[in-house]
Amino acid sequence: MADISLIDQTLSFSIPAKHCRGRAVRLGTVLDEILLAHNYPEQIKALLAEAVCLTAMLGSLLKDEGSQLTLQAQTESGVISLLACDYKNGGLRGYVQFDAERLALQPIEPSLMALFGKGYLAITFDQPPPRGRSQGIVALEGASLSEAVQNYFLQSEQLPTIIRVAVNCDGAHSVAGGLLVQYLPEGEDGKERLHVRMDHPEWEHVAVMGGSVTPNELTDPALALEDLLWRLFSESDEVRVLSGKPCVKACRCNEDHIRDVIARFPKEDKEDMIGEDGTISIDCAFCSKKFIISGASLNN
């Protein structure tokens, strides 16, 4: 197996004999850049790191260039009012909005219910025609975001899936690693969905092996992802590494984009946006950049 990458990259692989495909990811520098955009407390940093790692794995499942995956939490009565991450062509971004006072009342490791209340996770796939846009929604239940996403594939897609994510936010740098494995019986990928037995011996074997991965294995930068896959699955099966795609922080905010968004508003709304100093101030939640647009420069 070729040494493709140690960090900041998604890795595609398959286990042909068991009709399984998967993604492995480990993020470091790109994760630091996303987390440092705001002064997040440790609990929120860990949650966002997990969400970004999940977004990278799910986004890398998309085959067409220009496709986008968005992961967004819809919450009610929780500490967090907004969590949003997306992936496009290897570019990642993420943001969490939360109530600091309510978070301070929580234990060091708050539950998913405490963080989100009665929450739901929306997973949106934006792909070129003819696929177009599709969205799945799953309740934010269980021990982690990863468990909720795993339940989405089991419940909404009827696709046997295991997902494991580990995060290490100790010290000056953060690392997140993830493993996703799915069972696709022969002839199913890209074709009409076939009924899948969750207890099929092929899948049971792979699920046990994949589920045995440890948090340290997922986050250890010294352990190449290729070696991890070999360690987990190669004792009884051939593991094929198909491709690796680098991940970067890629907030798509810029002045031209902001001007384009403002231009879509009616003239009266644009005039209401202009402050006393004659400018419109726009803050990007994803990267904390501030853009000052002169009202006089806008086309009415």
Score class of each variant (00 low, 15 high):
S236K: 14
G142D: 03
E255C: 13
R193T: 15
A250D: 12
S77M: 02
G177P: 02
T55W: 02
G136M: 03
L71C: 06
H19Q: 14
I4P: 02
I163A: 00
H195G: 04
A172R: 12
K249Q: 15
C251E: 00
G187I: 06
G28Q: 10
Y152S: 05
L105Y: 05
P185S: 03
R131N: 15
A122R: 05
T55R: 07
V149Q: 03
L184A: 00
F125L: 13
S144W: 03
L58P: 02
L140G: 00
L184P: 00
K18I: 00
D260G: 14
G91A: 07
L218G: 05
G142A: 07
E42A: 11
I123K: 08
V25D: 01
D170Y: 14
E33H: 10
I123T: 13
G78A: 08
P246K: 10
A143D: 15
K88Y: 02
V52P: 01
H38E: 08
T55K: 09
E192G: 14
K118I: 12
N300K: 12
L35S: 07
H195T: 02
A46L: 03
T124P: 07
A263Y: 09
F116K: 00
D189A: 11
S146H: 03
L121G: 00
Q182I: 04
V261W: 08
D272N: 15
A296H: 06
L184H: 02
D86Y: 00
V52W: 01
C253V: 06
R197K: 11
L232N: 01
R133A: 07
G90T: 08
I292Y: 05
A222E: 09
G59P: 00
G66D: 08
D64K: 09
D272W: 14
F98W: 02
K191Q: 12
I163C: 04
T124G: 05
F286C: 09
D220W: 04
D64M: 14
T70Y: 05
F125Q: 11
A49K: 06
L115W: 03
T75W: 01
K18G: 02
D269L: 12
K63G: 04
V165I: 11
G132H: 04
A143T: 15
N254T: 09
P130R: 07
R264V: 12
S77Q: 04
D269I: 11
S144A: 06
G91T: 02
S14T: 03
S212D: 15
V181Q: 06
